[in-house]
Simulated assay, not measured.
Amino acid sequence: MRIVLVEDNFILGSSLKKALEKHAYGVDWFRDAETALEALRDNAYDTVILDVNLPKASGFDVVRELRQSGNQVPIVMLTALDSVRDRVTGLDEGADDYLSKPFDLDELLARVRALLRRRQGRNETVIRCADVEIDPAAMVARRNGVQLHIPAKEFHLLRLLMERSGRYVTKSDIEYALYDTDVSVESNTIEVTVYNLRKKLGTDFIRSIRGVGYMVER
């Protein structure tokens, strides 16, 4: 899953980027509205985390331009402004959710997961394929009802494959969804992650075709 983070405060922005990446999200971080809008015009993203107070243009301006252009990417707004008027303005412009600073990281992550589920049109949180089920909101995986210990990076790859069950997902699609574009991914990183998942889920759960990609059966 790829996230646009728009935050001009360097300390907060860098800490949020690291925290989101630790949870296996790919993050493109921008410190001004203009650069963020350019990236959003040229690329498809899953969520935007957007500060209100930005140089040159506000977060409200970003939301307004995105919605007027027809871009319905889910948006969580962040602000130090703790007034009802500011919250109402952001939501009226088209934001999907709102958090006032200071906020708890776990709450932000939960809200991002909720927006992703809503965008994917899933009312239930559990995804099932064969004898494996995952709860993306709780980041819990089970096989035959037994809970498994799966690290964050492996969990997000499993979620991606199960969300696209019945279709092959290419290595480049996986890299784009799970890794920051500014970070060099080792050539065997995905293969190692798949190998580790197969040890927990069974060797036949994730199918692969060299040069095509990986797939989980429906």
Rank of each mutant, 00 (worst) to 15 (best):
Leu148Trp: 01
Val132Thr: 08
Ile49Asp: 01
Leu40Thr: 04
Leu16Lys: 00
Asp204Met: 13
Val126Gly: 10
Leu12Phe: 03
Ser83Ala: 06
Thr79Phe: 06
Ser165Met: 07
Ile134Gln: 00
Val63Tyr: 04
Glu154Ser: 13
Arg142Ser: 03
Gln72Leu: 12
Asp173Gln: 10
Leu108Glu: 03
Gly94Phe: 00
Asn123Phe: 10
Leu81Gly: 08
Leu54Trp: 01
His23Glu: 12
Phe103Trp: 14
Leu197Asn: 00
Tyr214Glu: 02
Val76Gly: 03
Glu65Trp: 14
Gln72Lys: 14
Lys171Ala: 14
Glu133Trp: 08
Gly211Cys: 05
Arg67Tyr: 02
Arg167Trp: 09
Ala138Val: 09
Gly121Ile: 00
Arg41Phe: 08
Asn71Asp: 11
Leu158Gly: 05
Ser58Phe: 08
Asn188Met: 07
Gln147Cys: 06
Glu38Cys: 13
Val4Asn: 01
Tyr45Ile: 00
Asn188Leu: 13
Thr35Phe: 13
Glu186Asn: 11
Leu105Ala: 13
Leu105Gln: 06
Asp204Trp: 11
Arg159Val: 07
Lys56Val: 12
Val132Met: 10
Pro55Thr: 04
Lys171Ile: 10
Val212Trp: 05
Val169Ala: 04
Asn144Glu: 13
Val132Ala: 04
Arg87Ile: 06
Glu191Gln: 11
Asp61Ser: 11
Met77Gln: 09
Glu65Ile: 13
Asn196Tyr: 11
Asn71Ala: 10
Pro55Lys: 01
Ala138Asn: 07
Ala39Asn: 07
Asp180Arg: 10
Asn144Lys: 11
Ala39Asp: 06
Leu40Lys: 00
Leu160Lys: 05
Leu178Cys: 00
Asp180His: 09
Ser15Cys: 12
Glu175Phe: 06
Asn196Lys: 13
Ser14Tyr: 07
Val52Gly: 04
Leu148Ser: 02
Pro74Phe: 04
Ile3Ser: 04
Thr89Asp: 10
Val140His: 06
Lys56Trp: 13
Val6Leu: 10
Thr47His: 15
Gly213Ile: 03
Glu34Leu: 12
Leu99Tyr: 02
Pro74Asn: 04
Glu191Asn: 15
Lys200Arg: 15
Arg31Met: 14
Arg87Thr: 04
Gly202Ile: 08
Asn188Phe: 05
Glu175Ile: 12
Arg142Asn: 09
Tyr168Cys: 06
Ser184Asn: 11
Gly59Phe: 07
Leu109Ile: 14
Asp131Cys: 09
Leu115Thr: 02
Gly59Val: 03
Ala141Gln: 01
Arg210Trp: 05
Tyr45Arg: 09
Tyr195Met: 14
Val216Thr: 02
Ala95Gln: 06
Glu38Thr: 09
Leu37Met: 11
His23Thr: 14
Gly213Pro: 00
Arg118Asp: 12
Val48Lys: 06
Asp96Pro: 11
Glu93Ser: 11
Arg118Asn: 10
Lys22Gly: 01
Asn43Glu: 15
Asp82Arg: 08
Asp82Trp: 01
Ser187Ala: 14
Phe103Tyr: 11
Val183Trp: 13
Glu7Phe: 00
Ile75Leu: 01
Tyr45Thr: 01
Asp8Ser: 08
Ala152Leu: 14
Trp29Glu: 08
Leu105Cys: 09
Val146Arg: 14
Leu12Ala: 12
Ile11Pro: 15
Leu148Gln: 04
Thr35Met: 12
Arg31Pro: 11
Gly70Glu: 03
Arg31Glu: 15
Arg128Gln: 07
Thr89Arg: 10
Val27Asn: 01
Glu175Cys: 12
Phe103Gly: 12
Ala24Ser: 15
